[in-house]
């Protein structure tokens, strides 16, 4: 029996790669690491793992490294990467899929404000069929525990400006086809979270 190696060996998990592939429909195996995605990425400066590395780590089933990265939350889905990719790998779709898996598996999130905002954003949409900014902002502040006075003042100033221009209502606007919309949510999420 050999002695333990000096470095930490990591076990690859082919089933994670298969799960992501099936769930997202993104053919991640096609990637040959040309790095075109990372070169064109506007958000790369704020990421801890470059987009091409997210694809590679997913390919070889390095689940933890992918799900605990900040990159999956920092991606703005601008789609510059997929537009340029020689293999048509849809990284924003891949990122969406990784969000969902991370939230379902309650992985510690590197950028906690992002999923909180995501939920705060979607909650009024699910209920009324349209965004209700006051509720969204309130939910976000409560859930994200962003009680900084300075932030609140900035938000209030912005809100006032929007209100005077008729961009912000103090009551929700409910659409007519809420049932149809609920069916869509049901169909796409299939009872899964947000």
């Amino acid at each position: 029996m050999a002695s333990k190696p000096k470095y930490n060996n990591t076990v690859c998990d082919p089933s994670f790669a298969a799960q992501v592939r099936e769930r997202s429909g993104v053919e991640i195996e096609r990637c040959y690491q040309c790095m075109t995605c990372t070169l064109g990425c506007d958000a790369n400066f704020a990421m801890d793992v470059a987009p091409n590395q997210i694809v590679r780590l997913t390919q070889i089933g390095m689940k933890e490294a992918v799900l605990t990265s900040s990159s999956i939350w920092v991606c703005t889905s601008c789609e510059a990467c997929v537009t340029r990719c020689p293999n048509e790998i849809n990284i924003p779709h891949l990122m969406d899929c990784l969000h969902q898996i991370a939230l379902e598996e309650e992985t510690p999130v590197k950028e906690p404000a992002v999923p909180v905002f995501h939920r705060a954003f979607m909650a009024p949409v699910r209920q009324f069929g349209r965004q209700f900014e006051v509720l969204m902002t309130g939910l976000f502040i409560l859930k994200a525990r962003k009680f900084s006075l300075r932030d609140m003042l900035t938000n209030a100033k912005l809100g006032f400006g929007m209100f005077t221009r008729g961009k912000l209502k103090f009551g929700p606007h409910r659409i007519k086809g809420t049932k149809a919309m609920n069916d869509i949510f049901q169909k796409t999420l299939g009872g899964r979270g947000t």
Binding site: M1, T10, V11, C12, R56, L57, I60, A65
Partner: peptide, 27 residues
């Protein structure tokens, strides 16, 4: 692959993926 050795019923393979810089261990 730096080393392959027997580990019970399995063969342990120690290698590396240089595209990620990750060490890899496969049973």
């Amino acid at each position: 692959v730096s080393k392959v050795f027997r580990d019970g019923d399995k063969l342990k393979v120690w290698g590396v993926d240089t595209l990620t810089g990750k060490s890899i261990e496969i049973a």
